[in-house]
């Protein structure tokens, strides 16, 4: 046993390590030169049999060699890994502009979307959404709202009647507005009341770009002690800003609906021209959004509320109209044609 053999071993090990290009061969090399049955381990194990001087000399050299080989192994392994990563990076290039794996995209109908947005605005203000029947009694649609038969205000709501006769009259109809629910809600609840009622309505009306015989409305009703026109204004103002943006201005004007007094309608300043006048607002600078007013005291009295104690406001708006304004849709008929080229835009 001599240090010469160690030198030869070192030279051999280094030569063969330099030729190694993969992890498997590297492991083989480790077993061969540093493993339990390697020559070097054998030498180290045999040291005790050597005379003291030689043991010191060979032992130191063998340990040095072991350290050197371990270092060389670690370096080689590191080098190989870096090289592998480099190779992976070079070979693994992909075209990142290729389309992703397609996931079918579903959408809600724009009327559903807008209706939900409107309802959400009011829910934040403590209103709850409830619903009512689309086929109604004349009583709820008209009479209970102070629109008896032969009242000229019936002209405001051309009606589709159900082919059902009783006492020489047709008492059933397709509701022309969501307002019957004002009475329905008050009949089953006591104040305080804050509800919104979304739903489909129907009019006997020829269709054109701004008229449909089926439409969606959202009705609102708040009844409590101390509710005034000022609260109506504040609530609807808040709604308009939430839905149409903080910079929108609103305008209230007097209007007539038999079931409210005072009556009003609300407009927002045109967001196309900012009130200058354009084709969207027909030159007026303002776009009418909804009818509103203070619930008529007779209606409160008829459902058993004390109109001296309670006051309330009501409002109603067309969802399609709001959707048209938000999305700049020029023809209301697009909503129910269900052309996917239209629906998939929202």
């Amino acid at each position: 046993m001599s240090t010469g053999e160690l030198q030869t071993l070192e030279a051999q090990a280094n030569d063969s390590l330099a030729a190694i290009a993969d992890e498997t061969s590297l492991e083989d090399w480790r077993v061969n030169y540093l493993g339990r049955r390697s020559r070097l381990t054998e030498i180290l194990r045999g040291l005790s049999a050597l005379p003291l001087e030689e043991r010191k000399q060979v032992g130191a050299a063998a340990n040095r060699l072991r350290e050197a080989l371990e270092t060389a192994l670690a370096e080689r392994r590191d080098m190989l890994r870096k090289r592998d990563v480099q190779t992976f990076i070079q070979q693994g290039r992909i075209d990142v502009t290729l389309p992703g794996r397609p996931i079918p995209m579903g959408r809600l109908h724009p009327v559903t979307q807008t209706q939900r947005d409107i309802v959400a605005c009011f829910e934040k203000m403590g209103f709850q959404a409830v619903e009512g029947p689309e086929v109604e009694w004349d009583y709820y649609n008209f009479e209970a709202l102070r629109i008896p038969e032969h009242h000229p205000a019936r002209d405001m709501w051309d009606t589709m009647w159900i082919d059902y006769h009783r006492d020489g009259r047709m008492p059933m109809l397709l509701r022309t507005h969501t307002s019957p629910n004002q009475v329905r809600v008050m009949e089953r609840q006591q104040p305080p009341i804050r509800v919104v009622v979304p739903g489909k309505c129907y009019r006997y009306e020829a269709t054109d770009a701004t008229h449909e015989w089926m439409l969606t409305q959202v009705e609102g009703l708040a009844v409590d002690e101390g509710i005034s026109m000022a609260d109506l204004k504040g609530t609807l103002y808040e709604f308009a800003q939430q839905l149409f943006g903080q910079e929108r201005r609103v305008r209230f004007r007097c209007d007539y609906f038999p079931f409210v007094e005072p009556g009003a309608d609300m407009s927002i300043d045109c967001f196309v021209c900012n009130g200058e006048g354009c084709s969207t607002c027909k030159g007026a600078g303002w776009i009418e959004i909804m009818g509103a007013g203070m619930v008529h005291p007779e209606i409160l009295a008829n459902v058993g509320y004390d109109p001296e104690r309670y006051t309330g406001f009501a409002f109603g708006m067309g969802v399609e109209r709001v959707a048209m304004l938000r999305h700049d849709i020029e023809d209301i008929r697009l909503f129910y044609q269900n052309d996917l080229r239209f629906l998939e835009q929202f």
């Binding site: 403590g126 709850q128 609260d231 204004k233 305008r251």
Partner: peptide, 16 residues
């Protein structure tokens, strides 16, 4: 109507 005040509802929120 534009001269009337504008306020927020202040009463209790009805139970859901």
């Amino acid at each position: 109507y534009d001269q009337l005040p504008s306020t927020s509802l202040t009463g209790p929120i009805p139970s859901i």
